[in-house]
Design a binder for these strands. Structure first.
Lengths: 338, 338
DNA sequence: TGCAACTATCGAAGCGTTTCGATTGCGTTT
DNA sequence: AAACGCAATCGAAACGCTTCGATAGTTGCA
């Protein structure tokens, strides 16, 4: 394995010159740089990661703490893990994966052994053990999600409240006065994942502000539970003319099946919006208006903020990514009578 | 941040004594060890990861190359990633996540910069670009899955052929002579993922050996495609009395729905086995006999083999994990007439 | 009593970088 | 022609650990 010494020897310069040529931190004559680059090429030289970590001030590794439990919806989770990995690589950072059983001890370990420069926190719960650990550690960290007490933290997330308000606003503007919401399973809310309640509360608040009637159901994954949820909404809100889906793909698909089976046309009989889903919604029949949860948006920003923190402290903040709205024709004015 | 010097000073010994006390590589007086441990505790000392990598011969990090593409079934993928992470931590190894867009270049990068001690390869395709790279690199590596040309590689995987044969054998023993197979979507087979064809071929081979009639369908994820697949099987194999499911959770669920909807009782009218699924199958109604794909089995073994390779070269091999069979009462002798 | 064989400990030499002063050689300015 | 500034390069000191080869100090045995 070629070292910087070998490169220096082949190029006929000192090792510091090689280092500066490669880092660009001091000016180097064009001809020298060329010789060095040739030597690097010829020897297949790659700087030794360990030596770099030791001598330099950074490791170019982020820890990604991504717990995974029974309620986790794997596709969304994967999408975020992936987005963090890709965003990190774009800044020449690698990603070290920390899992559930090591959540807090692992953070302590990688931070205090100086294995990572910073931490990206995924799947943040309202009361999250990792918050306390990270506060103490003082290692640069970015939360993707917002814990109840975000004091002193740097957080990024989709603005779920605004997303819910946006859904309400679009439907209200179309004339709807009774809107149902199908959320995640009760377990998700119970576990304290931070975003489902934020969406739900935003939904109720925006609806109340516009004097709109609401109903809310939290089905499990299975078909019969979804069926019951739809029934429940119609019972609780007999004049319901619009539905907001804030749930997993399988549940959304089941809802669409049930509507079809009951002869309810979208959007003629019922307007439907899919909100904050991290999966594609254009394969539904019909395609649904969507307020997407774009993993790359939050993750890219999170990585940027982490990089900034590696360079030096930044002000704590909660950055909420504004929701977007994709029109696909699944909302219409309510039918005059049903 | 406390260094080994600080520990040595506080304990009143030299740094080499501290190092030996912590690594256990030379004998240290009990009293000295105690003083050192106290100092470590008191200072909250953690060895610097970079220094360790540089001075020692290993980094205690494995690269996990886990591509993710359109055909990837996220829950299974997650299960494997997680299992690798957990098995690695059990041996004091961390896991660096490499994604699709960096598949080969990332491997080269982390291996030749000596950032990782070894590589765990997930989601192996029959013809996988990573195989060639890894052969050249000479870095310890373990494939979870078996590429077409496994010459010189260390591979671990569930024995999918044996699993298929086991399914056939159980059904044949119960008296079935016409067995259908519902596989993954055509895209999965086309992409060259290694295990679906292995299962399929094992299925046909075992059936042929016992003179059993077969039919095979590859539905997409959506309900209508699954419905068509079931129809296709019954058309191709009118006397079909048993069904083997080797597909995603949603498809298996859809199949069960369709059977119910057609008034086909399991196992009275149709015996069903769920084969090589990495998800729980006991929530289906009725619960299905299952040959599970246990991520932890393969991953634990893979990590062990990686560790062995870090210590020194081992013989190339393909280790196939024998399938297990979970009885849940979803197979019965075929009905005398239909 | 002397010497071999341990045991417990120490000192120092790396490991491969980065980075902080030099130092050298030129073209400019006065 | 002396003095200066700047660009290009070098040498050496860290960084924090592991590990090899000494060196005392003890024990055991002849």
């Amino acid at each position: 394995m070629a070292s910087i010494h070998d490169v220096a020897r082949v190029a006929g310069v000192s090792i510091s010159t090689v280092s500066y040529a490669l880092s660009g931190k001091r000016s180097i004559a064009e001809s020298t740089r060329l010789r060095i680059n040739n030597a690097v090429e010829q020897l297949g030289y790659r700087p030794n990661a360990g030596a770099r970590m030791l001598a330099g001030t950074r490791t170019n590794i982020f820890a990604l703490t991504a717990p995974f439990h029974a309620e986790t919806y794997a596709p969304a989770h994967m999408a975020f893990v992936l987005a963090v990995a890709q965003a990190s690589r774009a800044h020449d950072y690698d990603v070290l994966l920390l899992t559930q059983d090591e959540a807090t001890s692992g953070l302590r370990r990688v931070a205090s052994s100086r294995l990572v420069d910073g931490i990206i926190v995924l799947d943040v719960a309202a009361d999250d053990d990792r918050v306390g650990v990270i506060r103490k550690l003082g290692t640069p960290a970015v939360f993707i999600g917002v814990p109840r007490d975000a004091e002193g933290l740097v957080c990024v997330d989709l603005d779920f409240e605004a997303a819910a308000a946006l859904a309400i606003s679009r439907l209200a503007d179309a004339g709807h006065r009774a809107i149902g919401l199908i959320g995640h399973s009760p377990g998700v809310y119970a576990r304290g994942s931070n975003f489902p309640p934020r969406f739900r509360d935003g939904f109720f608040r925006a609806a109340a502000a516009r004097g709109i009637g609401t109903a809310f159901a939290m089905p499990e994954r299975d078909g019969s539970s979804v069926r019951a949820a739809v029934d429940e909404l119609y019972r609780a809100l007999p004049g319901m003319t619009a539905l907001v889906l804030h749930c997993e793909e399988a549940v959304q698909a089941a809802v669409m099946d049930i509507l079809r089976e009951r002869g309810l046309r979208v959007p003629e009989d019922l307007s439907v919006i899919s909100a904050c889903a991290s999966f594609e919604t254009d394969h539904f029949e019909p395609a649904l208006d969507t307020i997407p949860l774009v993993a790359a948006d939050s993750c890219t920003r999170a990585v940027e903020l982490a990089i900034e923190q590696v360079a030096g402290p930044i002000a704590p903040r909660v950055e909420l990514v504004p929701p977007r709205y994709l029109e696909r024709g699944s909302i219409a004015p309510p039918a005059p009578l049903r």
